[in-house]
Amino acid sequence: MDFARSDGVARTGPGIGPGGGRPLLPVKVVVAGGFGAGKTTAVSQISEIPVLTTEAPMTDAASHLDDAGGLPKTTTTVALDFGCLTIDDEIKLYLFGTPGQERFGFMWPDLTDGALGALVIVDTRRMDACYAAIDYFERVNLPFVVAINRFHGSLAHDLDDVRWALDVPEKTPVITFDARDRASVRDALLVVLRRSLEVLRG
């Protein structure tokens, strides 16, 4: 078998996709956070395909609503953007990014159903953008980790302050990471998965 891992994709022959054209077992992790928090950036660091979206770019009306705070933002898509990574010859990991505000809650049952866990990306300038998602994940017992995206290498809030502000359970990890750094995103996902194991093992 010809096994090329340089691009993160296992191949068994020319022109054959991940898994050699054989369907793999798909598993998923949800990546939630407000607009501009770094969801798409984080997913793109790990994904072996360009990040895809199933929804249209934000309408002008919605864009106006979400621009409160006047924070810089270059590209914004609503709804679902996602990527994937072939884990081994049998498992494929999907990462689904979703906004964390309540009005996007309609898609959460679908995304969390069977998910291994969730990474909640927090922009400390707009922490309210993930309240609803955190509430939801707690309600459906989806293991999650709060990850503060270190914009420009600075951390505006102390981790304990963020934990207090978000009122997350003591056992929920609160970490910092850099959504632009592949190893950092990978490590954040590893914290999610270890937390999932912990929850599973009670």
Partner: peptide, 25 residues
């Protein structure tokens, strides 16, 4: 797809494999 009723041990094994796979990137 992963059957939604997958047992605990099976889920553990899957998560462990995802951890190993992610570590390797």
């Amino acid at each position: 797809a992963q059957p939604r009723m997958t047992g605990r041990r099976e889920r553990e094994v899957i998560i462990e494999r995802v951890i190993r796979g992610l570590r390797a990137i």
